[in-house]
Write a protein that binds this DNA or RNA. Structure first.
Lengths: 194, 194
DNA sequence: CGCTGCCAACCATTTAGTAGGTAGATTTTT
DNA sequence: AAAAATCTACCTACTAAATGGTTGGCAGCG
């Protein structure tokens, strides 16, 4: 993990998240980092290698973020809202979710990459499902909701809102959607109190 | 609107929705339609022209679908569920939403295309907002929801679910999310009755 | 010495787009 | 109605630029 390697990962991530995987070239990346094209191949022999490293680093960062949320917040609603704010950063910076971007180009992507992206989503679904289940048990969430279904709904809503509000309504619109999403999960009186 | 032109639009739409805008080439399209590359340029001089025509045709088809929904269904919940089933088709065929695909590659796209995509989403938001407002007035929806915010949430959820369940859970998972989404909009007792 | 990080120069292929032409239909002119 | 001009849809053959990737070398350093 050299300095240049980290810089390559950072700039490549930005490029993918703004223009897509097929939408950026090694030439673009070289220009962004300030080295020559051939030097990128030294760190990442093929574009697929780069993409795999990108997803791995992204997934690791998210894992750390999920752990931090669990440490910082106790109740399920607060945790889910904090999870949603992770996406808000993307809206603010004009960056889509890396895995959403890649998922959309799915058909044209190497097989292993698709599997890694699927695992990314599955991990988040499982995490949210756990949060929801715990929140239900503690009475912090509206009784009657199905954790499995709601976990998928939460991610779908956040991914969709990021996708859409990045070019439409910006951070405020995203925050509005996040608020409504959380409100739909908590008991009626708690929702009205917000 | 010649036959070949329509065929080009159809195949190009499929290509974009599976592999992204930057992810397909005139060579791919030519092969799919069975004519030569140069002949595509006769119908669509530049790739941007093609993309613009694609979005225009897609938006028109959706306009027709929205009108059909209004004709076929009377109550807001049924209309919103029917709207959601529009997206289900994409999951079943393994195709993303054209405008979502393009929105994700946003930064690398021609300006006018971005504007057209934004208008696509805005129109849907406005339509849903109208449905929600009417449903609220007739008491078919859970009182207290904000039509503006919920309209955005509905589209975000459906776009996100399409994106995710296309590669993860398939039509059943999408249907589950759609069900939960509609349930979150109707009054509590109606929701429980489902 | 051998390794790492980088580079210039190259390569084959693919990219969007152009040039120029042909066969057939349609329209315009006589 | 015949002839001439124009248009449509497609083609082969090309181009310049960009694509991902390779080769071989060079400087610095433990």
């Amino acid at each position: 993990m050299r300095d240049t390697r980290a810089e390559l990962l950072m700039q490549a991530e930005t490029l993918v998240r703004t223009s897509g995987y097929a939408g950026f070239s090694y030439a673009d990346l070289a220009a962004a980092v300030g080295i020559r094209k051939a030097s990128i191949h030294h760190h990442f022999p093929t574009k697929t290698d780069l993409a795999l490293a990108l997803v791995a680093a992204y997934a690791d960062r998210y894992d750390a973020a999920l752990a931090a949320i669990e440490a910082d917040h106790r109740e399920a609603p607060a945790r889910i809202e904090a999870y949603g704010r992770l996406y808000l950063g993307g809206v603010e910076q004009g960056l889509g979710c890396l895995c959403a971007v890649l998922a959309i180009e799915g058909e044209a992507l190497p097989e292993q990459l698709r599997a890694d992206i699927a695992r990314f989503f599955e991990r988040h679904i499982a995490w949210l499902e756990g949060m929801l289940r715990e929140g239900l048990a503690r009475g912090a969430l509206r009784p009657g909701i199905d954790p499995t279904t709601q976990a998928r709904l939460v991610i779908a809503t956040l991914e969709g809102a990021l996708l859409m509000e990045r070019l439409l309504g910006g951070p405020e619109a995203f925050a509005g959607t996040l608020g409504a999403l959380v409100a739909s999960l908590v008991p009626a009186q708690a929702s009205a109190a917000t």
